[in-house]
Design a protein around this nucleic acid. Structure first.
Lengths: 191, 191
DNA sequence: CCATTGTCAATACGACCGTATTGATATGCT
DNA sequence: AGCATATCAATACGGTCGTATTGACAATGG
């Protein structure tokens, strides 16, 4: 046996490559992602990409999953900044991050939108894309009272996110729409 | 000068090729669309496809536009079947078609979802995809009263449509969500 | 120390892609 | 009649793609 070495470095290398994928996807779409392009964007060799991911599909899947994790982290950090938040505040903060102006979030939503088309025929990607939805809707149902309203709220938010990703709506306009919808569902925020 | 010939046949040939594109996209995603695959699916030669469309991008754009036109026709036909429809009935019928069980509509929504990712970096496709939204939201604003509600309603509907396209939600469930939302916006249908 | 194993870089391979080119055939105007 | 043109089918071309292969180097456990 030999070579145990720092597993953190391994994850850092993989993450750096995944981030290159995000930049490419956000800038030029999924069809611009080739191993050579990714390697170039990340400033590494194709061999390195192959070594860590083996296959292109595995790379894309890892990239998507990591993007979701990073997004979850940003949401958690936003919630951690609230003082004595109730469930409604948590919901509002989550939506605010999804449609917020953080560049990483905006990039992630563009990535998310790009993968949506691939989720049509790739089960693994569809699972990764929609993995959090069940939990998210369950939590939302408790806040808004009705599962139909919870489902509708996230469909609305995701629809808006796609519009923003495609440049059809500004993030600010999308927030106004979702706020208006939330006020209807929950009553005005400070009441 | 010579060779004016039936322009209908030209359009029929183009439409047959576009329909092959839809089948491929709906079955295997946009990445499965190559000129050779399209020609094979349509049962024609690659030369024919090239002759009518010249370029792959032009073919995809034509396919998307024709899909939207066909969709509009199905909606119009549904509305024509209503007796003395008010504006609210027209809106409900439009949404019902988008989330209805018509196989052509379901296929079109899958195509729409596939193109969404490409709309991130292709302006022409983005324009075609979102071309009808302005008009649709304007009309909806008159029905529901508020532009924010109109925007939200279509974001919700499109979000649900994407979920259905990816197999994450059944069309029936999506209709239930949108009906529930409409009842909240407009009051129950027969009131 | 040395065998093993993780980490790559370089390159080769075969497949497929979009497009250009060429040429054949049919059609309809003059 | 004959010519211009639309309509293709067939094929060639150059490029890119994902992946496999090979080999070098480094680090480490025994």
């Amino acid at each position: 046996m030999a070579r145990k070495i720092d597993p953190d470095q391994r994850e850092q290398h993989k993450a750096a490559i995944a981030e290159a994928v995000w930049r490419l996807v956000a800038r030029s779409g999924l069809e611009a992602v080739s191993l050579r392009e990714v390697a170039g964007e990340a400033g590494v060799s194709v061999g390195r990409v192959q070594h860590y991911f083996g296959t292109k599909d595995a790379l894309l899947l890892y990239g998507l999953r990591l993007a979701q994790q990073r997004m979850e982290g940003r949401i958690r950090r936003r919630i951690a900044g609230l003082v004595a938040p109730g469930a409604e505040d948590v919901l509002r903060a989550t939506l605010a991050e999804l449609l917020g102006d953080d560049p990483d979030t905006r990039q992630a939503v563009r990535v998310w939108t790009a993968f949506l088309g691939r989720a049509l025929d790739d089960r693994a990607i569809a699972e990764a894309l929609f993995a959090d939805d069940v939990e998210l809707r369950a939590f939302t149902t408790e806040v808004v009272g009705s599962p139909l309203d919870a489902h509708g709220l996230w469909a609305l938010a995701n629809g808006l996110a796609a519009e923003v990703a495609c440049g059809q709506t500004t993030a600010a306009d999308a927030r106004a729409v979702v706020d208006h919808h939330l006020d209807r569902l929950l009553g005005s925020p400070d009441r």
